[in-house]
Design a protein around this nucleic acid. Structure first.
Lengths: 328, 328
DNA sequence: TTGTAAGCGTTATCAA
DNA sequence: TTGATAACGCTTACAA
């Protein structure tokens, strides 16, 4: 590997002069500088990241940790993160799995964005205590080195519930996320609140997992119990898709016998027949804000937690309730 | 930051002893070793990646470079890469964008997998010349430090064309990928071959871009020229989806007036109405093989290029041609 | 303007 | 079994 030492030798100068020249310092004559640059190019010199990092104690790299590389929410989110990171002179790397956690404490990255329920809060707090900078998107954690960019889960769940109620539905199944999911818990809180303050609304929780399989299982249960049209609020779209897939094998029709609304408004939602109603938000903005927060945190600037606003994405999967007399 | 020096001081031993203990060398007494380990834990010691890398000249990290984080093919591919990488003691990081290319020459990763048309071959060859190990998934590059895991594009395109022909279609529009795309060029070769050896088949190329917008534009053109049922081979699914979206706004029906087949069999394909026929292959295996090849390349083992086999995924988007007399 | 040298945190060689 | 020390490639304070 060619190092500044090689360049120094060939140019007949010291390594510090080479370093200065390479970093565009004005301490060096234009003449020597250009000579050094020419030689560096000729030798195909590339600086060594490890050496630079060791000396400067920073990498100018941000890491984002995901539960799984598969998953429909990620594309736009990562894109948003990348845009902001790059604009601010940071590179972005995407990691997944427990094995990769070391990147943070070993200082291969200057900070981390977490969207991974499997990354334990205890571990995160430990790293934060060691001085590492973290932005979390999927939980609340009180620590000076940790910031939050969270979805407005309560608003979203409220919107969804009210939409179903407005359409006249009285019996609402709610498919939850996995145990321990912050997003699921927050959404459930709002569900309870809305139900409590509304007359005549019955709601039944079905434990889910935020994956297609959870939706399929829920579909089985609801089919069994089916007597008359009901509504379903799936706490994410992924499960809603699984639900639809299973229901499609039956006589029941979405938007007619079963009125379904999801959460996340993933790309697939608009291709469902009928279109899956859902709660929408800008995934790209979510990522952009996360990067922004993290970079500020690293720079030692004061930062306030942020929220991502949500809206209702209407769809034929939720139709009006038929009055009792007319129902099947 | 706590370093081995701090541990050494506290334990009253030298830094080399600490290093040995930490790395589980049997040169150290169990007694001193466990004492050192205890102190390390107590001080929350975490090794510094930059220092280790600088000394060992390897990172045990693999990088994969994508054009864009959005894109439906990636999830399973990355998952496959991760499984193999982790099993072999490597971490995987995902990068996108020109800015991140430096990770390879600056030695932040031990090798790279390329699925990014924007990453120029010239640049790759330069890095390969410098001794960096690379596996490409989207082109052919002859270099001892570069290996290939390529789709069987020709088989795929042949399968698609033959499927259309078998169904009796005589006029076939082919939506190509962007200029310079290896996959597109390979698929086009097969298209030509099949057309040449088949009687009475007319085919018309429409330049595309492998994105939804390309499919939409092509739809416009075909609508304009429409006289009687035609077939369309979209060289990827993404464009096919765009095509479907645009056609959905017209009187024309996919699988009836326009018979469409794609390539990649992305998840969305099965949710199209009617289901989008496509060319299928295991994205996960593709990724797994890529990691495998790269790790071997890094280890200096001899490796042979690999191919990913493809199959036809049938779907209602391709129906039989109606005989002339019966056509509209 | 350029050179000398210390130091970043490891690993690994050689002596003790 | 342990310790002293050089080396990895770079940045930067200080000296010349």
């Amino acid at each position: 590997m060619v190092s500044i030492k090689d360049i120094a030798k060939k140019a007949g100068v010291s390594i510090s002069t080479v370093s200065y020249a390479l970093n565009g310092s004005n301490k060096v004559t234009d003449e020597t500088s250009s000579k050094i640059l020419a030689i560096a190019k000729e030798l195909n010199y590339v600086p060594n990241a490890a050496a630079r990092t060791l000396k400067k104690q920073k990498t100018k790299i941000l890491g984002v940790f995901l539960t799984d590389f598969r998953g429909d929410v990620y594309g736009d989110l990562l894109h948003g993160m990348k845009e902001v990171s790059n604009a601010q002179g940071y590179d972005l790397i995407v990691c997944s799995g427990k094995q990769s956690h070391r990147m943070l404490p070993e200082r291969m990255i200057d900070g981390a964005v977490i969207l991974d329920q499997m990354f334990e809060s205890e571990e995160l707090l430990k790293y934060a205590d060691l001085g590492h900078k973290i932005v979390v998107l999927d939980r609340e954690l009180s620590h000076p080195n940790i910031n939050h960019v969270l979805l407005d889960n309560k608003a979203g769940a409220t919107l969804a519930m009210e939409h179903l109620i407005e359409k006249g539905h009285k019996k609402i199944y709610v498919l939850t996320g996995p145990e321990g999911s912050y997003d699921s818990a927050q959404r459930m809180k709002a569900v309870r609140l809305v139900a409590e303050r509304t007359q005549d609304v019955e709601w039944i929780a079905i434990p889910g997992n935020f994956e297609k399989s959870g939706g399929e299982k829920a579909a089985e249960q609801i089919m069994q119990e089916y007597k008359e049209p009901v509504a379903v609020f799936s706490l994410n779209d992924e499960m809603a898709i699984g639900f639809i897939n299973r229901i499609a094998e039956t006589e029941l029709r979405i938007g007619e016998h079963i009125h379904l609304i999801g959460f996340d408004n993933i790309e697939l939602a608009r291709y469902m027949q009928p279109r899956l109603a859902s709660i929408d938000y800008s995934k790209q903005k979510w990522g952009a804000l996360a990067s922004e927060q993290l970079i500020k945190l690293i720079a030692g600037e004061s930062v306030e937690d942020e929220q991502i606003y949500v809206t209702l994405a209407d769809g034929g999967s939720v139709g009006p309730a038929i009055k009792k007399a007319e129902s099947v």
